[in-house]
Structure formats: structure tokens, C-alpha cells
Amino acid sequence: MSKRVCQIIKLKPEAEAEYKAIHANVWPSVLAALKRSNITDYSIHYYQPLRLLIATFKYTGTDYEGDMRTVAEDEETKRWWKVTDGMQESFVEGAEGSGKAIPWWTELEEVFRFE
């Protein structure tokens, strides 16, 4: 059974153009790491008035925490996060960046689904 995940984070105003540009050409190695870790149907939307980035994806594996650790340990993904984390402002108190003990993106509760 798949799990759907929705997360948010804030985009720094000065980073809007650069963030969109880098995501127009995501590094193939980063996409491969996601695929290896059972992440599919990944999208990020941007709500400019509040500078919110809203990410959604499906997880199709059987060990979500383990697969998320695998993504966090991928060297190219770490390099990608060094670029993108600097463009973002986390809502999570104490968060220091992607792949750390405290989540960088805020995971949202699903309150409705229609399939």
C-alpha cells in the first residue's frame, strides 16, 4: 500500500528565480536516489503570496523511515540540499537542514482524500 506525503516550507524571497531555475533541471542523480527509495509522483508547487513551497509525493515501499535515511545518505542528494536548503526557511523549530534528525520540511496532516 502506498503512502502519500505532503510537506511545506517557506522560500526566501530573493531565491524565487534561482529555485525555479534549478528545479527546471533537477540533477538526474537526485531523481535516481528518489526512485531507488520508492518515491514516485513527486511535485513541488509554489504559492507566491505566502512564499510557500508545497511538495507532494507517493511512497510505494515498505520501510519509509529506512528509505528516507537512504535518500539522506546519498552524496549527490546531500550536495543538492546544500544548494536548495539555503533558499528555504523551515517552519520546524531547531531544524538545521535536510536529512538531519529534526525534519527540514513540515509534513502536513491529510484531512481529506478522494480517489
Rank of each mutant, 00 (worst) to 15 (best):
M1G: 15
M1V: 15
K3W: 04
R4I: 10
V5P: 00
Q7P: 02
Q7Y: 06
I8M: 02
I8Y: 01
K10F: 09
L11C: 05
E14H: 03
A15S: 15
E16L: 09
A17M: 13
A17D: 14
E18F: 12
Y19C: 05
I22H: 04
H23I: 07
A24H: 11
A24T: 11
N25K: 12
V26Q: 02
W27L: 13
W27Y: 11
W27K: 13
W27A: 13
S29W: 13
V30T: 05
L31C: 08
L31S: 06
L31K: 07
L31M: 09
A33S: 15
A33W: 13
S37R: 06
S37T: 06
S37F: 04
N38I: 06
D41N: 09
S43A: 11
S43N: 09
S43Y: 00
I44F: 00
I44T: 05
I44G: 00
H45K: 12
H45Y: 12
Y46Q: 03
Y47S: 04
Y47E: 01
Y47T: 02
Q48F: 08
Q48G: 11
P49W: 03
L50E: 12
L50N: 11
R51D: 09
L52R: 11
L53T: 04
I54F: 06
T56L: 00
Y59K: 02
Y59F: 05
T60N: 09
Y64M: 06
E65G: 03
E65H: 05
E65A: 10
G66W: 00
G66E: 01
D67C: 02
D67F: 01
M68G: 05
R69Y: 10
V71M: 06
A72H: 08
A72I: 06
E76G: 09
E76S: 10
K78N: 02
K78V: 04
R79I: 12
W80A: 03
V83Y: 07
V83P: 07
T84Y: 06
T84W: 03
G86H: 04
G86E: 04
M87C: 02
E89M: 11
V92H: 03
E93W: 15
G94I: 12
S98F: 14
S98A: 14
K100I: 07
K100C: 07
I102H: 00
P103Q: 01
W104G: 04
T106Q: 07
E107L: 03
L108G: 05
E109H: 08
E110D: 07
E110I: 11
V111F: 14
V111I: 15
F112E: 11
F114E: 13
E115R: 15
E115C: 15
E115Q: 14
